[in-house]
Design a protein around this nucleic acid. Structure first.
Length: 567
DNA sequence: AGTCGGACGCTACG
DNA sequence: CGTAGCGTCC
């Protein structure tokens, strides 16, 4: 490519923009390390129309390296090279200057990419690479470019309320402990709870309290504090302190620190999750709490009035506001991982739960099947328990952890799991098939053939082998859900552009997409998004057949904290 | 004497 | 299961 030097700046910019746009949309193969970053830079620098970058096609060696070995992705070009040639790669000249090094890299770039392409082909990953992962790259760049508007004043107000309440809980905690100590220190809390107050010895019917995983010390985690809270006021105060502190440090102060020019600009990372999921960082928008935090605010001002306390509800998503004249539209795949478990298990009773009426509640339906009672008389607590059991089985967590979630004994939890597996035997068949396949091939695959190498599946160490088995099963379910969500992002993006709708994707929460939409386009966008996400076209034009239908629910709102269901 | 970085524990989300 | 990020502690 040539860049003329004798040009006015204005013309020069126009010239470059034209050149680069032509190059990017041409059929010529473009190899680019960190393609996402380049696209973002170009959108920002040349003020390009975001929709025009969706059909740019590039190949990125780092993304290829990650797909080949998702547990140990290469972070630099050197690491990509190392990965391909292992130990027998040509030594780089340590003393060479930057230009020489760059030239060496460039001279290798094409060869490297050619080799990566061949590897991807051999591993049956090329289709996934070209038609999913690389198509997603410009979409992620777009998400980073748009950013999300937040109202800083709301965050500051929340911070003030939290600060006051934290101070009060702190002094109450010191009183109940009998002395001051650092409430945020697990080590100090452990001493107070167990060495000074001996709460573990007073614990009802000798309940087993959790231990820390690395050092096997007495844990002070939520599940332990819940068990201790009836013995002494301190555990409950610590629980409240932790909730308030988490909210303040991560979701108020942490978010405020990430605001640049009035908006949040998270980075979206393709290659940091071995399961194929996306991650977001600085901030991690995917972990902003959904449930509001209820806090009791003592009103010192008018103690004469009847109520001593007034309760305030703090919602971390409340300060996220759609831009002027726009609304957020969220599209959520309803229990997609569970549906995929049903698909893979082919268990007739499980499949039946997802067939027919879209309106019915799948966990009520499942509880009804499991307990042999009519759906109408399923209790809320039973429904909740069913949900926990299903997710525990999918994640492969044992009876102990399930017991803490359900607040029952480990024996009871074990009973629930075995009862469930007896009632839906397809699930066990599926998990065993996963593990056997993994043992035979050394890896497992998702519906889009994404793979994960799991060498520990043959480990003589029981813990490592069990962990590997859980990972194998979980990867197939979680990774397949990730595949489908990526397909949705790509296809919805394409359809919105084709229909001239200016909705833009801002956030991906694994099974949910959040768009920002002009108010007058909300109805059209809702229709398009829902149709596509539920259509057979989504699954590679119907080439992939699922045993269950996918269902999408839509909600709309001006604030991310106040979204209402929308037909 | 102050500061950095890694290990660890805990907890949001899905 | 597996991400990010906050906090202590050495």
């Amino acid at each position: 490519m040539m860049f003329p030097v004798n040009m006015e700046e204005q013309d020069y910019t126009t010239y470059c923009r034209e050149m680069l746009t032509q190059l990017m949309t041409s059929k010529v193969s473009k190899v680019c390390l960190d393609a996402q970053e380049l696209i973002l830079t170009m959108i920002s620098h040349f003020s390009l129309d975001i929709t025009s970058v969706y059909n740019w096609s590039m190949v990125d060696p780092k993304v290829a390296g990650w797909l080949l070995n998702p547990d140990h992705p290469p972070n630099t070009f050197t690491e990509v090279v190392k990965m391909l040639w292992k130990d027998n790669h040509q030594e780089c000249d340590q003393d060479a200057d930057a230009t020489t090094l760059l030239c060496q890299d460039l001279s290798q770039l094409l060869d490297v990419m050619e080799l990566l392409r061949r590897r991807l082909m051999d591993c049956d990953l090329l289709d996934l690479y070209l038609n999913v992962e690389m198509k997603l790259t410009p979409i992620l760049a777009g998400m980073e470019y748009h950013g999300i508007c937040v109202d800083p004043q709301r965050l500051i107000n929340m911070g003030d309320i939290l600060k006051k309440r934290i101070g009060m809980v702190e002094s109450d905690a010191y009183k109940s402990a009998g002395h001051r100590f650092l409430l945020s220190s697990h080590v100090q809390l452990r001493t107070v709870l167990f060495d000074e107050l001996h709460l573990d010895e007073k614990c009802e019917n000798r309940q087993k309290l959790a231990r820390t995983s690395v050092n096997n010390l007495k844990s002070t985690s939520e599940s332990v504090l819940v068990k201790l809270q009836h013995l002494h006021p301190l555990p409950k105060l610590v629980l409240e302190y932790r909730k308030l502190e988490k909210m303040k440090s991560t979701y108020v102060d942490g978010i405020l620190a990430c605001i640049k020019e009035g908006k949040l600009t998270a980075t979206w990372d393709h290659t940091s999750a071995a399961t194929g999921r996306l991650t977001s960082a600085n901030p991690n928008i995917q972990s902003v709490p959904k449930q509001p935090l209820e806090i009791t605010e003592a009103s010192n001002k008018q103690p004469a009035e009847g109520d001593k306390h007034e309760t305030t509800s703090l919602c971390a998503r409340e300060p996220y506001i759609a831009r002027e004249g726009c609304s957020f539209l969220a599209a959520d795949f309803q229990s997609i991982e569970f549906r995929l478990l049903a698909h893979f298990s082919k268990d007739p009773s499980l499949l039946k739960v997802f067939q027919g009426d879209d309106k019915k509640d799948v966990f009520v339906e499942l509880t009804s099947q499991w307990m042999n009672v009519p759906p109408g008389s399923v209790q809320t607590t039973d429904r909740e328990r069913t949900k926990r059991v299903v997710y525990s089985i999918m994640y492969g967590v044992g009876p102990e952890k399930l017991a803490t979630y359900l607040n029952v004994s480990a024996a009871e939890a074990k009973g629930f799991i075995s009862s469930f597996l007896r009632r839906f035997p397809g699930v066990s068949r599926f998990t065993h098939k996963c593990i056997e396949e993994c043992k035979a091939k050394g890896h497992v695959r998702t519906i889009l053939k994404r793979w994960r190498l799991i060498p520990n599946i043959k480990s003589p160490n029981f813990f490592l082998k069990s962990q590997a088995e859980r990972q194998a099963v979980n990867f197939v379910v979680q990774g397949s859900a990730a595949d489908i969500c990526k397909l949705a992002m790509i296809l919805v993006g394409k359809q919105l552009v084709e229909r001239g709708l200016r909705a833009r994707l801002l956030i991906q929460l694994h099974d949910e997409l959040v768009f920002e939409v002009a108010d007058e386009e909300v109805d059209s966008v809702r229709g398009v998004v829902k149709d596509i996400m539920q259509s057979d076209d989504l699954l590679c034009d119907g080439k992939i057949k699922l045993q269950v239908p996918l269902r999408v629910s839509i909600s709309v709102g001006k604030s991310w904290g106040r979204m209402t269901d929308s037909e």
